[in-house]
Design a protein around this nucleic acid. Structure first.
Lengths: 249, 249
DNA sequence: TACACCGGGTGTACGTTGTACACGGTTCTA
DNA sequence: TAGAACCGTGTACAACGTACACCCGGTGTA
């Protein structure tokens, strides 16, 4: 599960040269990665076992290790492969560009919710992920911002999308695990609702009674619009205060 | 690892009655939970083993199961215990209140980065978490918003904080695992930097060369200010469009 | 007081995970 | 043609969560 990091760099950034000797490989790195992504999509990252991947490919478990150094590196490869699946280059003025960027990432998270469970460790950044990041920076590069501001603006959008993505991914995952839809599941928790009394949770019960949880707004659309509005305020301001980290953890 | 959900509800919301018979317990549920939190804080959630928790308490592994139904429920208990650690009640007008709320959650994530790896599944909400959520709703309740808007506003802030939190948690975790500081680690990746060429990643290299990555802004402060600005725009607008989910998920 | 029984702590054992290692067969190079 | 490189396989091991059977201390009831 540990991964030698220099090996990981080579793995991601330098496509392996085909060996000249030995028998022709029936398997390949990309087939392993594809199969792993398919398993994760269909059954979740917790079902992503080396044995399971091998099974779907019709090979033994250990055969995978001829094409991938270990599970950790396989995850790196999966992540970067997914980053490369959609168009990288947002166009247009900054707001449209960031909007496009956010929607691309959002669509990616919807297609592969497990991405949000994996990026959780210091994964080696791959070329696809970096190219997308670069394109996002390019979108706000014409505004005359300082370069640390460019980074901050893009990062703010990313953080928001990551946040909504996580909530969404949790729901998807829970629905698959339990086989029950979000609504049905919560409806089945009478034992829980008994404790939602107006004296303990006044606002919660009020919102519930006035139907605020049933007619929920689209959290992605709502939040993204607010974030972009906030960035617009910042960008249009003449005197921009530079917020430097003091106790940045 | 599976958890019976009704049992979980009782576990979290109904403090267990002390048994009248049998020997006095040398261990207790709260001691187990405390010990588990300490382990997770110090060694990360991946080191959080039933065996490890038992070891720090000086008991056998199986003794834990007398006080906690299983690991999954132990995680539920840990999460809610942490939510209860800090003050719940933000005060003041909406902006100050949401600011306070965000900072509280942020501080919590800094103290317990593993929280962001756990909330990832449909965890049973506990009383502490719900109380805090309720207080957050209360803060924006005086603005005359529709109840679904109240939810949306608070959720937008939560999503942002979750996003920054994740990035921060990843760094913390990586630093502990590798024993190397973020900066040193990246500096040691010469094999990686070789691939950051101006033709492949123009913006990235430009920002790098102009020092934009060295003088990074405080992502939490910057992002939070933008999000609150964006919410202010929304709140002060007369005609608020209600964004309903169309293809939610 | 006698005794049954409830419940806390222990020890063993099983299935599942990632993967190290040795092996046998295949294909190209010297 | 000998040998090296490489592919796929089979076995084996340590670490994980936890089911199960066990012992024994304390309390309520007879």
């Amino acid at each position: 599960m540990k991964s030698d990091r220099d090996r990981s760099v080579r793995l991601l950034w330098e496509p392996p040269a085909e060996p000249t000797r030995g028998p022709k490989a029936a398997l390949s790195q990309s087939r392993v990665v594809e199969a792993a992504i398919k398993v994760a999509d269909a059954e979740g990252v917790e079902a992503l076992t080396m044995r399971r991947v091998a099974e779907t490919l019709g090979f033994t478990t250990m055969s995978l290790y001829r094409h991938v150094p270990g599970k950790s590196e396989l995850l790196d490869l999966m992540v970067d492969a997914v980053w490369g699946e959609t168009e990288h280059t947002p166009q247009g003025p900054w707001r449209a560009g960031l909007d496009f960027f956010a929607r691309q990432v959002w669509a990616m998270y919807r297609a592969h919710p497990w991405m949000l469970q994996l990026t959780a460790s210091r994964r080696m950044p791959g070329p696809q992920a970096m190219t997308r990041q670069d394109a996002a920076y390019a979108v706000v590069s014409e505004l005359g911002l300082a370069s640390e501001e460019i980074v901050a603006v893009v990062t703010a959008v990313s953080h928001f999308v990551e946040g909504v993505g996580r909530t969404m991914a949790d729901r998807v995952r829970a629905e698959r695990e339990s086989g029950v839809s979000e609504e049905d599941w919560w409806n089945g928790r009478e034992a829980l609702w008994e404790h939602f009394t107006p004296d303990r949770l006044p606002m919660m019960t009020h919102i519930w009674n006035s139907g605020g949880f049933e007619r929920m707004l689209d959290q992605f659309e709502f939040g993204l619009a607010r974030v972009l509005d906030g960035l617009a305020v910042f960008i249009e301001t003449e005197e921009r205060p530079l917020v430097r980290p003091e106790t940045c953890l």
